[in-house]
């Protein structure tokens, strides 16, 4: 299968503090890579660099056979091919749901409005938001907003979708309604790079898990291997931090 994304030894520092110190990563078509690691390990920065929201200091990023790092002028053309969803949804508050969905495909991709609209209606139905096209973002719950944000990214038909902690701001009961949509997309063969703190979800959706610490890849492997038989002490420690010891067990 084709390699969609090739990240070669990228480095990035903010004000002298190294955030990424030589990360490499290949993502094949249809593959779902989940990136996990302690907070501040650089996982969000990695996604932001891929999308050009942050400039890398050194290294290379290739989208199929195009070098996309270090470009400035036509970065918007690259971004049309890479979708990204953030933890803070970032729907456009002054537009209703449908206008949010149409903006990219109609203005950036110059697709006919009717065609996109029909597709948007179908996608909204698929994520359980049928008939909410006229709603304003502020009237939606966090989970609903995030599903709209996912549809907004998907309507661009991106070759690669980046999800940056998309459930971190949600109330616990809304997490699954969003993650089920993502699992659904993975089933359709969508290529994704996902940063998340939801370990059960990571195990369910990932083809490959990347464990990042202090800006470098410490371990990677299949979810079965990583979650049940981690090779490094760092990964073991990290996974242990998700289990709690009850009062009774302690005494």
């Amino acid at each position: 299968m084709d390699t969609i994304l090739r990240v070669r030894d990228i480095k990035k520092s903010f004000d002298g503090t190294g955030v990424l110190s030589g990360v490499s990563l290949d993502i094949r078509e249809g593959e779902v890579v989940v990136i996990i690691g302690p907070s501040g390990c650089g996982k969000s920065t990695l996604l932001r660099c891929i999308n050009g929201l942050e400039q890398i200091d050194s290294g290379e990023i290739w989208l199929r056979d195009e070098l996309i790092s270090g470009r400035k002028k036509d970065m918007h053309l690259i971004r049309q091919r890479i979708g990204m969803v953030f933890q803070s949804y970032d729907l456009f508050p002054h537009m209703n749901v449908m206008d949010n969905l149409l903006l990219g495909p109609v203005k950036a991709l110059k697709k006919p409005k009717e065609e996109v609209e029909a597709e948007a209606v179908a996608m909204l139905r698929r994520v359980g938001l049928e008939g909410r096209g006229q709603a304003l973002p502020r009237t939606l719950s966090g989970g609903q907003k995030q599903r709209v944000a996912l549809v907004r990214a998907m309507l661009m038909h991106p070759e690669l979708l980046l999800l940056d902690e998309i459930t971190a701001a949600l109330d616990p009961e809304m997490v699954s309604e969003v993650l089920n949509v993502v699992i659904d997309l993975a089933g359709d063969g969508m290529t994704m790079a996902i940063v998340t703190h939801e370990m059960r979800f990571a195990e369910a959706v990932a083809d490959r898990v990347l464990f990042l610490e202090q800006g470098s890849v410490v371990e990677q492997g299949t979810p079965e291997q990583f979650f049940h038989d981690p090779q490094t002490d760092r990964a073991k420690q990290f996974l242990q931090s998700f289990t709690y010891t009850s009062k009774r067990e302690r005494s």
Binding site: D90, L91, F92, G104, A108
Partner: peptide
Amino acid sequence: SQREAGECIGLT
């Protein structure tokens, strides 16, 4: 993040 969201759907 609004500016970034706009950039992410490929707007000029």
